[in-house]
Design a protein around this nucleic acid. Structure first.
Lengths: 222, 222
DNA sequence: CGTTAACCGATGATCGATCATCGCTCAAGG
DNA sequence: CCTTGAGCGATGATCGATCATCGGTTAACG
């Protein structure tokens, strides 16, 4: 499963595209979310480069990106480490996320009223995934629900800021590493959808509380 | 003033430190804030590298950092451009900043009560700078005031998120490029300090409104 | 045996060169 | 004259090699 060389032999049929550093970043993200590297472990640029059949440069760039996502720690002249996923760190994400999404809901209250059908769609898929025992699906649609809200705000500063929290990845890591439960069932989202539908001025606040409710879930939280 | 070579001849006395890419980033930030490159203009990696006497690599890394700060735009295989500073973009920063700082104030309401003296210090310096006609000082201390609040929250997700907004730089750019006025006088901050001192539950909300008030300042905003 | 400093392998940082892609130019074809 | 595509210069992307730094190892010294 590893050792997947990224060399492009010959003319490389088709649209090719995608800088190597992007592909490397995706692979590293994948490895991280699967626990290929555990927290505290070192990531050696040259080793990864050789393994992927690329040079040090794109690996280095990819690691810089992961640093921006707070997934790894880079120390000048020392190297790269996988950051610990502690319940404390996880707990610090929720307040920020809550504040940002509340703002989004307040900015987008008008647009959201027209998009409740999309939100309901996500809710339904979430529900279906839950019944099918599809954890991955639950996470994906759950995050999509929230991303929809943030995108609806149409604020080009807000969206990248929210994306930088990488909710989906953190949720996955939390599930596997901290063995948290997934309580994020569809029914929790229905009151929110209703609030958006009637453009309830309190919808933002409801959303914020909804998110802070996630914070109580981790089993690991003492 | 340009053409400052970064070569390190000989044993380089002293602590040396600081990767070249960091120095380059600082220089580029400086150039950007001074208008060395105007919005829409192209930044060519090799040209900058030669000018600074370094190779393409550290320049490239520095540009990636600037991209994360939303100061430039990078298009794969196309190059780097300085992003426009439009009143619209600027106006989108304030709501996000407001939401984040409100959260900070609410998280830190206890710690802030013990730090009102620091806040007052910044207010005083702001005031002094204003009287001295020292615009730069006003900006610096004004931002420091707000950073103090965000730091007091002690949330390791919140702080980097707030820093990524690069308030100080945007304020400077706004002053020079959009010719906005600086209404951010010290007296505006005094009610905030008082609210923090008495741990007013509404302090966060006050701070948020205070920040949104900045948004009305730009002359350029139609 | 504990302390200190030169030594050295591993690895991040940087370099100079090469590869690949983008846009533009310009001439052939209609 | 307009369209089309080969040719080409500029420049980003990637590479392989080299430089510099960090940390652990070793050996002289007391």
């Amino acid at each position: 499963m590893t050792g997947e060389s990224l060399h492009r032999p010959g003319p490389m049929t088709g649209p090719t595209r995608a800088p190597l550093s992007d592909q490397v970043r995706r692979i590293l993200l994948d490895h991280l979310s699967r626990g290929r590297w555990l927290p505290g472990e070192r990531i050696v640029e040259r080793r990864v480069a050789m393994e992927l059949g690329v040079s040090q440069t794109p690996v280095r760039e990819a690691l810089r990106d992961l640093q921006a996502l707070q997934l790894v720690e880079l120390s000048p002249n020392k190297g790269t480490w996988v950051r610990e996923l502690t319940p404390q760190r996880l707990g610090q994400v929720y307040p920020v996320r809550g504040a940002l999404e509340r703002l989004a809901a307040e900015l987008a209250h008008k647009q959201l009223a027209d998009r409740v059908d999309v939100l309901e769609e996500h809710t339904a898929r979430m529900h279906a995934a839950a019944r099918a025992g599809d954890v991955d699906g639950q996470v994906r649609h759950g995050v999509a629900f929230h991303r929809e809200i943030v995108e609806a705000a149409g604020n080009s500063v807000l969206l990248p800021n929210w994306e930088s929290l990488t909710i989906e990845l953190w949720t996955r890591l939390s599930l596997t590493r901290l063995r948290t439960e997934l309580h994020d069932n569809a029914s929790d989202h229905e009151p929110l959808v209703e609030a958006f539908r009637r453009q309830d001025p309190e919808a933002g606040r409801l959303l914020q509380l909804h998110i802070l409710g996630y914070a109580h879930e981790p089993i690991g939280a003492s």
